[in-house]
Amino acid sequence: MDELRRAITELVRPYVRAADARALDDPDAELVALGVDSLAVVELIVLIERRFSVTFPSDLLDWSTFRTVTSIAETVVSLGGSAGSGPGDLDRPHSATGSA
């Protein structure tokens, strides 16, 4: 799993049901099925935006973005984020709008 997906997996891990922790080894596992519910997704939005210095635009705030670790990673990349970007990374500009 690439670095970005690994980083996202670790952010998601605390929200996964205890019994389903191993399933998270697969970045394409459906997160809702693993117990990541609506309130967890809201917290993840905040954490991901902070961690990767991105801002999700309204049109990307839906369930398809947060379906799997991979879909989150792809969205983060489209917003200009990467495993290397983070709150301490001053070179990266914040990305305000996404692209398809």
Partner: peptide
């Protein structure tokens, strides 16, 4: 694995994750 043990008598959503 105390979390797994608790799932027998508590809804999964309330079982401690930490």
């Amino acid at each position: 694995d105390v979390g797994a043990a608790l799932c027998a008598s508590f809804a999964a959503t309330v079982v401690p994750r930490r």
